[in-house]
Amino acid sequence: MIEAKNLVKKYGDTVALDGVSFAFEKGSVYGFLGPNGAGKSTTMNILTGCLAATEGEVTVNGYDIYADAKMAKSFIGYLPEQPPLYADMTPVEYLLYVGRAKGLRGETLYREVDEVIRRTSLLKVRDRLIKNLSKGYKQRVGIAQAIVGDPEIIILDEPTVGLDPKQIIEIRNLIADLGREHTVILSSHILSEISEVCDYVVIISDGRIVASDTVENLRSVIDGTKIVNLDVKCKSSQAEAVLTQLVDIKHFEVHKKGAGVVSAKVEMSGTADVREQIFFAFAEAKYPIVSMSIEEASLESIFLRITSDSKEKKNKKYKISSVKTEGNNTDLGESEGKE
């Protein structure tokens, strides 16, 4: 569908992208995640042919983005970081212009523009000048521009920046909706957004892909240790006595919570769920557990760990199983072992 091979982008001596490769399939939502300046926008600009890579190539359905630019670009709808809007046009005029540029004509053009306006909820403002629209509406016109003409691949660079929470939810629903029939690639530094919308996450740091997997796999592979939080009606010493008997526990902390209740933070040693063991152990000792919950590694912690790891241990391999990326890309991160 859309494939990038060994993309390298240099601005003078600064290396913005350093050997980025991936292949995305149809019907999924892919998320690029990374700190500011990691190379997300550069990657997207290269994917859409707005920027030429110093090395490497991008093919869309087999068409090279430069050699067969017209064909390749006809499969792509792109919303750049800053929506490319003409202030002195109305959304309808603007979408008609973009639609014509994408090769739509006559009846189809008008039907398509109407459909896109409905989908992005622009009906209320369709005949107002874009310069008079609020940021949220402008962003929606930008998204409308990307999806007009029903392209197979929709690339959105930070699509929810500057929107209010209600609009963010609307846009997320729209993206999820689009993801059913299209390939949607979006970038964000908001982790909750990525984990909510995307099927696959590609984490970029310092111009390299440091991890690329499904959200669930990233969680389980990177952060094997799970933490169980529990509140028990007993004394601290009693809780400690019970917990030390258990085998599958690596580490625990107990502290008083008040009113005869202590809370314990238990770190598991393996991937096995020890909640049952904990429950029965306390039940046997007749100390009632009032609450127990498992804390899964948040995407935030994964993200921070990976991005800081990739900076610190540039020589170490970060081994993460890769789903949908190229076979030789399984050892993500430093396979070349560059200093």
């Binding site: 920027l51 630019a69 064909m71 670009k73 006809s74 792509i76 792109y78 540029a101 090769g103």
Partner: peptide, 8 residues
């Protein structure tokens, strides 16, 4: 960026 990304 729009001019660059359109198939024109």
């Amino acid at each position: 960026t729009l001019l660059y990304s359109l198939p024109v």
